[in-house]
């Protein structure tokens, strides 16, 4: 499902004294099956942009195209349920949305709302609970007696059970321990590959954006500052610092290394493996020289 934004603008509480502009002139296209990261400082409009992806918000200016559905500013929208079925959003701290008596019922809630039969929904619950790294025993328990990390996984399972084509993640690992973060990010990467999901990740973690994304959308004050590959975006650390963002530790290390030894590596490295690969020839020289 291709998603395109054409000069989209959004104003909260339009025509009131509390009117605030959140998006202006945003044009982005997200191709089917791509992995896009949206980064930007707090209040740069990331979350507002994200809510346009399944029409929770509809633009006050411009056009959003979600698959075949065209959403123009100022038009009354009906039957958006079909869009929401195809675009699953994992909100920040999604554990806050759990409410059913058992984990199984909660996971089935989404699919049942979209007209999936009860049997089918239960089968899906059994499948996704394993995908998010939990066991089937947990299905009969109450979501409120689980640990924070488990609740997060159950909430994510609830979105995955809807079987969306597009998966939108709003800081899915905020507040998790390092192990949990890594596991969950890997899980999304695997789903992205195995199911061909279009993935959109909103994150403050530059490491995640560098490791997983194919394309990075850099936001600033409600507008798109840059759309490029992670390598292009992170090869200009000064600009990111200016916007109040950081670069991944790997990039930072590479820069310090280059400055210290007055060398330039072949490319901006995004992962430790890449960096090691680039550094080995230099280290070899150093050893030979010394």
């Amino acid at each position: 499902m291709d998603i395109t934004f054409e000069q989209v603008g959004y104003c909260y509480q339009k025509n009131s004294p509390f009117e605030t502009r959140a998006l202006q002139d945003v044009s982005v296209s997200l191709d089917s099956g791509s992995y896009t990261a949206i980064i930007g400082h707090t209040g740069s409009g990331k979350s507002t942009l994200l809510q346009h992806l399944n029409a929770l918000l509809t633009p006050t200016e411009g056009v959003v195209t979600l698959g075949e559905r065209v959403i123009k500013a100022g038009e009354k929208q009906k039957g958006l349920r079909d869009i929401r079925k195809r675009v699953g959003i994992v909100f920040q701290f999604p554990e806050a949305q759990l409410f059913e008596e058992t984990v199984e019922k909660d996971i089935c809630f989404g699919p049942l709302n979209f007209g999936v039969s009860e049997e089918d929904a239960k089968a899906r619950a059994r499948k996704v609970i394993v995908e998010v790294g939990l066991t089937e025993e947990i299905l009969t328990r109450s979501p409120f007696e689980l640990s924070g990390g488990q609740m997060r996984r159950v909430a994510i399972a609830g979105v995955l059970a809807m079987d969306p084509e597009v998966l939108v993640l709003d800081e899915p690992t905020a507040g998790l321990d390092p192990n949990g973060r890594h596991e969950i990010m890997e899980m999304f990467a695997n789903l992205h590959k195995s199911k061909g999901l279009t993935t959109v990740l909103v994150t403050h973690s530059m490491e995640d954006a560098a490791t997983y994304a194919e394309k990075v959308v850099l936001m600033k004050g409600g507008t798109v500052e840059q759309i490029a590959t992670p390598r292009e975006v992170f090869s200009n650390p000064d600009k990111l610092t200016e916007l109040g963002l950081s670069v991944p530790d790997v990039v930072h290390f590479q820069r310090r290394f280059e400055q210290r030894f007055a060398v330039t590596l072949g490319k901006t490295c995004l992962t430790i493996d890449e960096l090691v690969g680039e550094m080995v020839p230099f280290l070899g020289k150093g050893v030979a020289g010394g």
Binding site: Q51, N54, L56, R81, R84, K85, G88, I89, F91, P94, A96, Q97, F109, G110, N113, F114, G158, V159, M162
Partner: peptide, 14 residues
């Protein structure tokens, strides 16, 4: 919080 939860549940088809 209410707004957030409502949005999350709407995203799940409510």
């Amino acid at each position: 919080e209410t707004d957030k939860i409502m949005k999350a549940q709407r995203a799940r088809g409510v």
